[in-house]
Amino acid sequence: MQNILQHYIPEKAIPKVLELLNNDKLEFIVKKERKTRHGDYRKLPNGRHLITVNANLNPYRFLITLIHEIAHFEAFKVYGVTIKPHGKEWKYTFQHLMLPFINPDIFPYELLPLLAKHFINPKATSDTDHVLALALKQFDEKSDKTYIFEAPKGSIFKIYNGRKFKKGNKRVKRFECIEINTGKTYLFSPNAEIEVI
């Protein structure tokens, strides 16, 4: 397991992550990129538990995602299966598990205040924290993708599945975008990755 982790998370985080993964009912798999999620957790029919994380994530996003999924396992183990997946029990567990990692030996200094703020009330995905998501993006491999908030109003763009949209007005937090083929309006998070056409 250590050999796998050393390719995906900061080196100083490995011992603590190994402790968290050291449960004979817990399986961990690194998956190829999935566009709709960074990772997931599920209980298997045989009673074991499976955590998956996308291989294409930078080390800091990978670590956050892995701890997020371990928090699901730990929260269900402690509080039972009737809790909400991202409810108060999960939030508390995620905060508790993540706290030892939020230090300059593991994360760059510029991320530490953003992580501290995010973990006051962690969300179902770090992507909904636009400031943190943008800060984490600087550690990604370079690509031709951009965030929707960076594109001018009226831009035509496509998303990962090839669907094309025209960027419209910003509501409170999200952007209204009209799908070119159907004319339907969809709301996009400001940090949705797009390819401007």
Rank of each mutant, 00 (worst) to 15 (best):
N3H: 10
P10R: 14
E11K: 15
K16Q: 14
K16D: 13
L18V: 10
L18E: 13
N23C: 11
N23Q: 12
L26M: 05
E33C: 02
E33T: 11
K35V: 07
H38D: 15
G39S: 09
D40C: 09
N46I: 04
G47Y: 04
A55E: 15
Y60C: 03
R61P: 00
F62L: 12
F76R: 15
T82G: 04
G87A: 05
W90H: 08
K91W: 01
K91D: 00
F94D: 08
Q95E: 10
H96Y: 07
P100T: 09
F101K: 11
I102V: 11
N103Y: 05
D105A: 12
P108R: 01
Y109N: 10
L112N: 05
L115V: 04
F119C: 02
F119K: 05
I120Y: 03
I120F: 08
N121D: 11
S126K: 01
D129C: 06
V131S: 10
E141N: 07
D144L: 07
D144A: 06
F149Q: 05
P152N: 08
K153P: 01
F157W: 04
R163N: 13
R163C: 02
G183L: 06
K184T: 07
L187E: 10
L187I: 02
N191Y: 06
E193P: 00
I194C: 00
E195Y: 08
